[in-house]
Amino acid sequence: MQPNDLERIARQIRLRDLQAVYEAGAGHIGGEMSATDILTALYFKVLRVWPEQPKHPERDRFVLSKGHVALALYVTLAKRGFIPEEEIHTFLKPHSRLNGHPNCNKVPGVETNTGPLGHGLPVAVGMALAAKLRGATYHTYVLTGDGEMQEGSNWEAISSAAQFGLNNLTLIIDHNRFQQGAALKDTNDLAPFASKLVAFGWDVTEINGNEMAEIVPALEKRTARPHCIVAHTNKGHGISFMQDRVDWHHRVPNAEQYQIALAELSETL
């Protein structure tokens, strides 16, 4: 699959995500738009997964640690064939298995339950370590938010991944520079991430995380040490009035905004 094809899929995922947020009246659209290109590259190019065998022992693992962007994952999983595409209509509805954070016991393709931040990376370290201990060849990917890196548990996991020599682990930091309430730099500014990860014994690649031609090679890159991709992204990417605006962390567009956003995403399809 070529970058152009992936970009088209990413735009379709963004559009479906926007529609679902509008229908449900809730979601975390800013972070969903920033992460969509990464999710697309993973599921349509990089991950070795089989939707009809979601528990295949040799599948690559992907952990969505920033679980609040579950909708973007659901739309991606649906498009990739893990769940029916029409099921996206049930997002947040009573008894839907598609709640606000992914549930691995209900949704095929979800590996572990996330929601509280700082959980996905330690679990991913365990997955990668299991592969080492069992001689399995799968690769483990985990996507965190940049604000999420403020959780101390991540740094416990980062140091242990280096200690265990997990060169089969890739951490992607969705560095959209905004957390729920404010800019990262105005809250607890961990940037720059690269030097910190290098200091912890990781190999680091910095990319434009909304540029498919940079995302795919970074995800496919294999390093001697655990690999961190610092993905410089834009919150609300693809929708002009949402881009880089902290108030679009989990706001829902009104009817007028929805039409503008629909038009912007549709014209590029």
Binding site: T112, P122, G126, S153, S160
Partner: peptide, 21 residues
């Protein structure tokens, strides 16, 4: 031995189980 890092210890345990251990 994850060192003195209990949150990581429990998360790593979950990941090891996911990996078949």
């Amino acid at each position: 031995n994850v060192g003195i890092a209990e949150q990581n210890m429990v998360g790593v345990g979950a990941g090891l189980a996911n990996g078949g251990l």
